[in-house]
Design a protein around this nucleic acid. Structure first.
Length: 569
RNA sequence: CGGGACGUAGCGCAGUUUGGUAGCGCACCUCGCUUGGGACGAGGGGGCCGCAGGUUCAAAUCCUGUCGUCCCGACCA
């Protein structure tokens, strides 16, 4: 490819709409352009990277036994009504009607579609296991699209679905995908971490997220320095902190004027924050009140709350009226003295506290000497805490560390959730009808590109990992109007191309500085400069984008040297 | 959806407070000159000032509405 034939409009300044580095650089380097909020066009350079990522994914999916298919983006509502998700998905689903008034959606995911595809054809255990995947646009009307390709409303996803005869088979498929994902992100040149994750609304069994490490990421993960435990912040299991035993003192109600926050309470009563119990009040979609109690210095984890309360799908902060109706007092809430039937969750650590301070469900009053095991009735005890730096690892007890990242992929076991609701069954050796046991596995392709940029950039622009760079190498004649330089550069370009290097010739008649700046911005891993110096000294000069080092090779050796350099990038 | 900010040329911005009919830098076109890190000179093209109402002799500027964008919260690849 020659730059004079390449549509790669670069910008000197970032458009004001871009906030994060990957978004800014993708716009400046001419990889993408915005069409609408959370909807983007891919320009030639951006699309080359997307295709390279897709190709890596394809190779690993095929190697793991996957077969590529293509399913429609437009999906009939009937399927979603069968699975029950037509209602559940809510406003995030892009819905449409055809001229006859039939309802459709733009697929946010394809569990329903693929299960319906497979249920009519897979009849026998002999056809299993089966892994089918596709790379297609997904549509999710995000509440707030942001950060360019990191959270968009239309995005390219690779989604694979596995079908097995039993749990054991599903776990084999799951492990194959887990391993394939690790290979994919490694081949893309990314620093990542697989972490245990919550399944969320998709349902099913266990799950891992593949998180590309980056400070700008939206995900927070906890990992152990002592063993290989790693989990998303929402999922991270926490050990119960057992307080040293104390004799239980009699419950005592004390006046705490205006002390409606835990900070005020601890200061007013002069107790350490570890001796206080605080409450967070939520309501679910049915406006059912859910009260969660954690130690004063801990934070509640809403995902754990959702998992602990049967039938709850979403949470929002409770209305004061709902709290009062349950016998509670906002700012002074307590599990003691609530009306029967109120959903009360108590963190396991709280149950181990002695003589603690908690609200009294009465304005300006708290209880002292609360002993949860003695005083709390009809409460659900479970792990409700959000992990924080330094918490003990659930496996080995060493302090956990926290870091941020971008969730580029996730693998789930689904079990029979969709095969049962959609009636996808097969016959086993005994002629017995059983539901297919499923798993699903997604990679955000555009997000992977964005994550790669977040992780690999400097003040001049992108520094692509070789495997996903739009071009591996750019040949720059310093002055393309100089016939000698241009023809020399063309010869080098042809040689590299013949040697299988993915090379671009920047034959534009721009001044050298302009071209160098563009090369750095776009981030080609290697640059060969053909100028008077190179011609006089009869050397090939190679500059490494990542390190800035400049190497000179002879015409005889440079092809080999370039190949060696590329291997390392 | 709640809270905040912003819509003026392809991009970045000034002008809005105090109404008088639109400007700067970059980019773009032509000519000259220049070519190892975003040159220079001369000339030139491009804007229903987001959109719709209203106030006024007169609106980018004031008022109302609306659409869009971005940031902070609840969702997710």
């Amino acid at each position: 490819m020659k730059a004079t034939n390449l549509y790669a409009p670069t910008l000197r300044e970032s458009p004001a709409e871009a906030e994060v580095i990957s978004h800014k650089l993708m716009l400046r380097a001419g990889l993408i352009r915005k069409a609408a909020g959370g909807v983007y066009s891919y320009l030639p350079l951006g699309w080359r990277t997307i295709r390279k990522i897709q190709q890596i994914i394809r190779e690993e999916m095929d190697a793991a036994g996957g077969q590529e298919i293509a399913m429609p983006i437009i999906q009939p509502s009937e399927l979603w009504k069968e699975s029950g998700r037509w209602e559940v998905y809510g406003d995030e689903m892009m819905r449409m009607k055809d001229r006859h008034g039939r309802e459709f959606c733009l697929g946010p995911t394809h569990e329903e579609m693929i299960t319906a595809l497979v249920r009519d054809e897979v009849r026998s255990y002999k056809q299993l296991p089966l892994m089918l995947y596709q790379m297609a646009n997904k549509y999710r009307d995000e509440i707030r699209p942001r950060f360019g390709l990191m959270r968009s409303r239309e995005f390219i996803m690779k989604d694979l679905y596995s079908f097995d005869r039993d749990e054991e088979g599903m776990n084999v498929s799951y492990q194959k995908m887990y391993d394939a994902y690790a290979k994919i992100f490694t081949r893309c040149g990314l620093e990542f971490r697989p972490v245990e994750a919550d399944n969320g609304a998709i349902g099913g069994g266990h799950s891992h997220e593949f998180t590309v490490l980056a400070q700008s990421g939206e995900s927070s993960i906890a990992y152990c320095g002592g063993c290989d435990y790693a989990a998303s912040d929402e999922k991270a299991e926490l050990k119960v902190i057992v307080e040293a035993p104390e004799d239980a003192l009699p419950l005592e109600k004390v006046e705490t004027p205006d002390a409606h926050t835990i900070e005020l309470v601890k200061d007013y009563l002069q107790v350490p924050i570890e001796k206080t119990i605080k409450a967070v009040a939520f309501q679910d979609d049915d406006e059912r009140l859910i009260l969660a109690f954690v130690r004063g210095d801990h934070e509640v984890n809403e995902v754990k709350i959702l998992n602990a309360v049967e039938g709850a799908l979403h949470l929002h902060m409770a209305e004061e009226s709902a709290i009062v109706a349950a016998g509670g007092c906002p700012g002074f809430m307590s599990p003691i003295g609530l009306k029967p039937g109120t959903v009360v969750l108590v963190d396991s650590t709280v149950m181990e506290m002695h003589n603690a301070v908690a609200g009294a469900n009465e304005k300006d009053f708290h209880y002292k000497n609360v002993n949860p095991k003695r005083d709390f009735k009809d409460v659900i005890v479970t792990d409700l805490r959000m992990v924080k730096e330094g918490d003990p690892c659930p496996r080995c007890g060493a302090p956990l560390k926290m870091t941020r990242g971008i969730e580029a992929g996730q693998v789930f076991t689904l079990g029979t959730k969709y095969s049962q609701s959609l009636g996808a069954t097969f016959l086993d050796e005994n002629g017995k009808e059983k539901p297919l046991v499923m798993g699903c596995y997604g990679i955000g392709v555009g997000r992977t590109m964005a994550a790669a940029i977040e992780q690999n950039n400097d003040e001049h622009g992108i520094i692509w990992p070789r495997a996903i760079a739009p071009f591996e190498l750019v040949v720059v004649p310093v002055n393309a109007k100089n016939g000698e330089q241009l023809s020399y550069a063309e010869r080098v370009y042809e040689e590299l191309k013949a040697a299988g290097v993915d090379v671009l010739l920047d034959d534009r008649t721009e001044r050298a500085g302009v071209k160098f700046k563009d090369c750095d911005l776009i981030g080609y891993p290697l640059r060969i400069t053909i100028g008077p110096k190179a011609l006089e000294e009869n050397v090939i000069e190679v500059k490494v984008r990542k390190t800035g080092e400049v190497l000179s090779f002879t015409k005889e050796s440079y092809l080999r040297e370039v190949r060696e350099l590329l291997k390392k990038l």
